[in-house]
Write a protein that binds this DNA or RNA. Structure first.
Lengths: 198, 198
DNA sequence: AGCTGTTTGCTGACGTGTCAATAAGGTATC
DNA sequence: GATACCTTATTGACACGTCAGCAAACAGCT
C-alpha cells in the first residue's frame, strides 16, 4: 500500500465547506418546516409525491422507489402518518400484495399550507444568495458529484478515463504532526476531514 | 401574504441536485468508513479532534463545542465508545464538573488505520471528479451558502477565529453534526415548485 | 397441479439523536 | 455564608432509521 494521497490545504477547505453543507441545509429546512407546518422533513418528503399523483394516491412500492426509500422505512413512516390522519392505506385491487397510500383532506390541506413557507425558506437561504450564473455552475457541479456518488460500486472506473483532476498543489500540509509524538497520522486524520461528522 | 415565489425549472433542477447531495455523500462515506474500519461517521468525528489534541484528550465541553454537538448526544456517544474501548473518561482536576475524554491506544490505532482509506474514499468520490478550477469554484459557492445557513454547530467557527492554528490546517472545526439525515427529500425539491403551480 | 424464486409489505429488535429533567459543581451578589 | 443563577454532564423517555426475518401474493416453469 502506497502513501495515502492526503488532501492539500485547498482541498481540505473545500471538503469542510462541502461536507458541512448537507447538515446545515437539512437543519434549517427541518426547523422551519416544523415551525411553519408541524412537519418533519420525512413527512414533507412523503406528502409531496402523493400530492402530485393522480387521485393523490400511490402504491407504497412506487412511493418508495420515487423517494429512494427502504420498504421498511417507508412502512414505519406511513404508519405514523396514518395515525396522525395525514393519509390512509387501502388495498390494491389488482395486486393483493400491494397497498395504496392515499392523501386525506387533512394531508392535502397540510402540504398546501406548508409549501409556500417552504419555498420561501429555500429562496431565502439558497437562491437569494446566488446569481443566475452561479445557479448554473452549482447545478453542474452538484449533478456531477451526485452522479458519481449515486453509483454505489464505482471503485475502479477511473483507470481508463479522463481523470483530469490534477494535483497542482503539493501536499505536505500536515504540519501539525509535531506536537503529537511520532504519529504524523494525527495530522493526516485531520487533513481528511476535521468535519467528518455526519 | 403575497404569492409565493415558486422555483423555476432551472432552480428546481439545482435544488434537487443540491439537496440530494448531502445524503448521497453521507451514505458513501458512512458505508466505506464502516467497511474499512468498523466505524460510524459519528465515531470518526469524535476520534479526529481527540487524535489532534495534546495528550490526545479533551474536555467533553470542548469536544462538544468543536463538533457542534449537543451535550446529551456527546454523552451518549462517548459512553458507547468507552464501552468499546476506544476512549476513557477521567475526572477533570481543575473543575469537578468537567470530564476528560482520552483516546486509548486502541482508539489511536483505530483512527490511524482508518484515515488512509477514508481520505482515499473522499478522493475517489469527490476530488477525482473535479478540476482544480472546479475545486475553487465549489469552495466559494459552498462557503457562501454555508455562511448564510449559519454555523451548523460551532459558535466560534472560522469567522471569529479561535483556531489553534498550528499550521496550515487547523481552523476551527466546522461542526456539522447537527441532526442525522432524516429525509432526503428529493421530492421536496419537486414540491417547492410543483405544489406551487397549482 | 406443484415447485421455485421473486416481489411486496409488515414487524420487532437495536443503535442513534433529541428533548426534558436531574444533579452537582462553580460563580456572583448581597 | 447564604442566596440565586449559570455551567457541566448524565440519564431516561421517546422518535426515527436500519436490519434481519417473516408471510402472503405473484410469476415462471415443468
Amino acid at each position: 500500500m502506497s502513501e495515502p494521497r492526503w488532501l492539500t490545504d485547498t482541498e481540505q477547505r473545500m471538503w469542510r465547506a462541502l461536507h458541512s453543507l448537507g447538515p446545515s441545509l437539512e437543519r434549517v429546512l427541518e426547523q422551519s418546516l416544523d415551525a411553519d407546518a408541524g412537519l418533519s422533513g420525512a413527512d414533507f418528503a412523503v406528502l409531496v409525491p402523493l400530492s402530485e399523483a393522480p387521485e393523490r394516491q400511490l402504491r407504497a412500492r412506487d412511493l418508495g422507489l420515487t423517494m429512494g426509500w427502504d420498504r421498511s422505512r417507508l412502512s414505519h413512516q406511513i404508519r405514523r402518518m396514518e395515525q396522525r390522519g395525514l393519509l390512509v392505506r387501502t388495498n390494491c385491487p389488482t395486486d393483493a400484495r400491494g397497498t395504496f397510500i392515499e392523501l386525506t383532506p387533512l394531508g392535502w390541506q397540510t402540504i398546501e399550507a406548508a409549501a409556500p413557507a417552504h419555498v420561501e425558506t429555500v429562496r431565502r437561504y439558497v437562491f437569494d444568495a446566488l446569481t443566475a450564473d452561479e445557479v448554473l455552475t452549482l447545478t453542474a457541479l452538484a449533478e456531477k458529484l451526485g452522479e458519481r456518488l449515486g453509483k454505489p460500486g464505482l471503485e475502479l472506473c477511473d483507470g481508463t478515463g479522463d481523470s483530469q483532476a490534477d494535483d497542482a498543489q503539493a501536499e505536505g500540509a500536515q504540519g501539525d504532526g509535531a506536537q503529537a509524538e511520532g504519529g504524523d497520522c494525527a495530522g493526516s486524520a485531520a487533513a481528511v476531514d476535521t468535519a467528518a461528522s455526519r
